[in-house]
Design a protein around this nucleic acid. Structure first.
Length: 463
RNA sequence: GGCCCCAUCGUCUAACGGUUAGGACGUCAGGUUUUCAUCCUGGAAAUAGGGGUUCGAUUCCCCUUGGGGUCACCA
């Protein structure tokens, strides 16, 4: 059994998007599971559209998600290798130059289309009569090309319907299908795991492999990711850059978990409730390329939101605090982890954190009615209760003032007067709002001084 | 249009040819809770249609319909 070597081959003509991310994840998992090698190959043969910033974005996105690659390559650096094989095909009469104008090709294809034929270019220069123009594959094959695919089984294509397809703009400028074949061979790629949109390219690539006497890798064409209306994923739907998900306040673990479950799912046990929370390590154990779904999957962010909430709930506090730093503008400094601890269960995105912290730090004016627990307390009862709270909390050691100490200090009072009668006015005093985090949590993050201050303020409002 | 791929709740999906078609998200209804959030319990919700094959079809085959991909001197 040959060593497993897989690759992802994004072109730096756009940001790393979620489809490429999933290809990267599935390739990465498959490589790790088989003790193989994961290669990142930048397909930058289109020099006009390729941009360094896109390559950087691809690298940045993969690094963020922890999908590390073992080898790196760039196609523009392989020009001499392409040239060698191109020349070999030309010399062997398996490729030729074609100088047909774009318009001529368009007309040919339109005519074929209206005649209900397969649109393809069968070039009249295929005997090698000219020496200028682009280089095409001389396709004389009449056979059926079978693509062996792990996900789809065997897919058959009629080679004669492919025509004399293009290989290179010139000896120095290879085009996609040709460059892919040469690189996959040169890099000993064993399995090609890519999007279904490449399925129709595969017979062309196999034809080139045969002409060059190369082997054929094993294929696995993954279903496409779709927008909400089942159309191709576009910016409207969320075909945004993966790095943009980070900016939107999603955690990398949530993104990985979400994407892994798009097109794949571990077998379920009948009747058993199941949490679909899987870390990269767990995915490594469970993932099975052969079980990947064939149909396209809609990218629905509701589920990503849920994953994010879940990870916000149970990831280590230090990890979350570190992640949160770049999202917080409030000068909370060392208290950030305290705020994170209080708010982690209440937010969906890291971007929600800053407004929540602001909300706690900057109490707004409120009506005295708020302190009365929806009329369940009279003004004098509320005032009395707040006085009692102030007295108890003032007696606490300031260095020891936190959520826990506040809670235990108030235990007796709670038993005496009832939870709501104490907790509602306390919480309302500290938040100034109908709904907020709990009173102990608030007291903990605010500290003794501010807590007492707000309670006294509430007392004044009641007067 | 040619070729190719695909089709289970709204969404992501599970189910050796035999299950009350399972789970998750979302949604709805209760419960716990000082509020909100959380948490717990429960409900509604799917095999696109038609033919076969079979004792038996979500599962295998064919047709229809629907969706998608691709057909560049893009990748």
């Amino acid at each position: 059994m040959n060593k497993v070597r897989v690759r992802i081959a994004p072109s730096p003509t756009g940001f790393l998007h979620i489809g490429t991310l999933r290809a990267a994840l599935f390739n990465w998992l498959f490589a790790k599971q088989n003790n193989g090698t994961f290669v990142l190959r930048i397909e930058d043969t289109d020099r006009e559209r390729s941009k360094p910033e896109f390559e950087e974005n691809i690298l940045e996105g993969l690094a963020w998600l922890g999908l590390d690659f073992d080898e790196f390559a760039r196609q523009t650096e392989h020009a001499s290798i392409y040239k060698k094989y191109l020349q070999q095909l030309l010399d062997g009469g398996k490729a030729f130059y074609c100088n047909h104008e774009r318009e001529e090709l368009m007309e040919e294809s339109d005519a074929q289309r209206t005649a209900k034929e397969a649109p393809r270019h069968i070039c009249k220069h295929r005997d090698g009569s000219i020496a200028s123009g682009i280089i095409r594959f001389k396709n004389d094959s009449k056979e059926k090309i079978t693509v062996k695919d792990i996900i789809r089984g065997e897919v058959e294509y009629d080679a004669s319907l492919l025509g004399d397809f293009s290989l290179a703009r010139s000896l120095a400028e290879a085009l996609y299908n040709f460059a892919v074949v040469v690189d996959d061979e040169e890099m000993n790629i064993s399995h090609v795991i890519r999007g279904e949109d490449h399925l129709p390219n595969t017979p062309k690539q196999i034809l080139i492999q045969k002409a060059l006497d190369f082997g054929t890798p094993i294929y696995a064409h993954m279903p496409l990711l779709l927008g909400a209306d089942r159309s191709k994923l576009s910016k409207r739907h969320g075909a945004r850059a993966v790095t943009e998900y980070r900016e939107m306040g999603y955690l990398k673990d949530a993104v990985i978990n979400f994407v892994a479950l798009l097109g794949w799912h571990p077998p379920a046990v009948k009747g058993e409730k199941e949490k679909e929370i899987f870390s990269l390590e767990e995915l490594l154990k469970k993932f099975d390329l052969e079980k990947v779904q064939k149909g396209g999957a809609i990218v629905a962010l509701e589920k990503l939101d849920w994953f994010n909430k879940e990870y916000l709930k149970f990831l280590p506090l230090e990890t979350l605090t570190e992640e949160a730093k770049s999202f917080v503008t409030e000068p909370v400094e060392e208290s950030l982890s305290k705020y994170m601890d209080v708010l982690r269960g209440r937010i969906t995105h890291l971007t929600d954190l800053d407004p929540e912290i602001k909300n706690i730090r900057n109490i707004s004016d409120y009506d005295s009615e708020l302190l009365l627990w929806h009329g369940k307390l009279t003004t004098s009862q509320a005032a009395q209760n707040i006085d009692n709270i102030i007295e108890i909390l003032s007696g606490l050691e300031s260095s020891n003032f936190d959520q826990k100490s506040v809670e235990s200090a108030l235990t007796l009072l709670l038993e005496k007067d009832g939870k709501g009668a104490i907790l509602w006015p306390l919480r309302a005093s500290l938040s100034g709002q109908e709904s907020s985090p709990g009173p102990f949590e608030l007291a903990g993050v605010l500290g003794q001084k501010e807590t007492i201050y707000r309670l006294k303020k509430a007392r004044e409002i009641l007067l």
